Simulated scan of single mutants.
Amino acid sequence: MWQFHQRLRPFKAISFDLDDTLYDNKPVMIAAEQHVADFVLAKCPESAKLGVLGWRALRDKIAQQNPELASDMTALRLATLEHGLSKFGVEQPKALAEEAMAEFLIARNRVQIPDAVHQLLAALAARYPLVAVSNGNADIQRIGLGDYFQAAYQPGNGNRGKPFADLFVAASEGLKLNHASELLHIGDHPVSDVQGALKFGSQALWYVPNKPMAGATWLPHARISQLSALYDLL
């Protein structure tokens, strides 16, 4: 279950990505995006021209035009909603976008965490300080993971998302680490998680379940295909 690329050095704390690392986020997002599209449609019938796929394409277009915004999923989705609604002539697009975003956050936090993940995090938290470092907008309290993490670091308040170093800096300062290498970051994305952690100076563990090792331009310290491999850290 382990494939090493660099020597894993002693570390003092662990940071976890959330979406698609600790749970399958795809069905959650499909349901959340449909919920928001339906909510907006009820308020603005003209948005039927977009539908879920149209809103997603607009989000991707805005993300390509603004890399920093692309790393903050909350800000990106809010900007997408406001932009789209303004095109449809809504009188107060910002206010409606904020309403729709609130609906999105309700739906996107309807996450089912596997029992095995609860057990793993409980075991790890008994030995290491754990924090969440995520570009997404999952709420660790609302999804039932608040008992394991000391804090969650996400974009906003001047902090850019991964692979920018801002969240790793904030996490390391919050954990009172002396060196970046004392943090082991675990995540599924080859750029946001692996490259972001390595550029900051942390150690990176890439979780790649059931798929080839593609998209990595920076080699992590190690790769695992199953989260249960993390019991070896105890």
Rank of each mutant, 00 (worst) to 15 (best):
M101N: 12
R108S: 13
R108L: 13
F104G: 00
R108D: 11
L120F: 03
F104V: 04
A95P: 02
M101R: 07
V131S: 08
E91K: 14
S86M: 10
L105E: 14
L121N: 00
A123R: 10
A116R: 15
F88E: 10
N137D: 11
A125I: 04
E98R: 11
R127N: 12
A97F: 05
F104C: 06
V131M: 07
N135R: 00
G136R: 00
S86V: 05
P114H: 09
K94N: 14
A102G: 06
R110D: 09
H118A: 05
F88Y: 10
S86R: 11
L96T: 01
L96M: 10
E103K: 13
L96A: 03
E103W: 12
I106V: 12
R127P: 09
V131R: 04
G89M: 06
D115W: 13
A132P: 00
R110G: 04
Y128D: 01
D115R: 12
A138Y: 03
E103Y: 13
L120Y: 02
M101F: 09
V90H: 02
V111Y: 05
Q112G: 11
L121D: 00
I106G: 02
V117D: 13
L120S: 02
A100T: 07
E99P: 01
A125Y: 03
L120H: 06
E91C: 14
E91Q: 15
F104Q: 08
V133C: 09
A138N: 08
A122L: 12
Y128M: 02
I106E: 09
A125M: 07
L124I: 06
E91V: 15
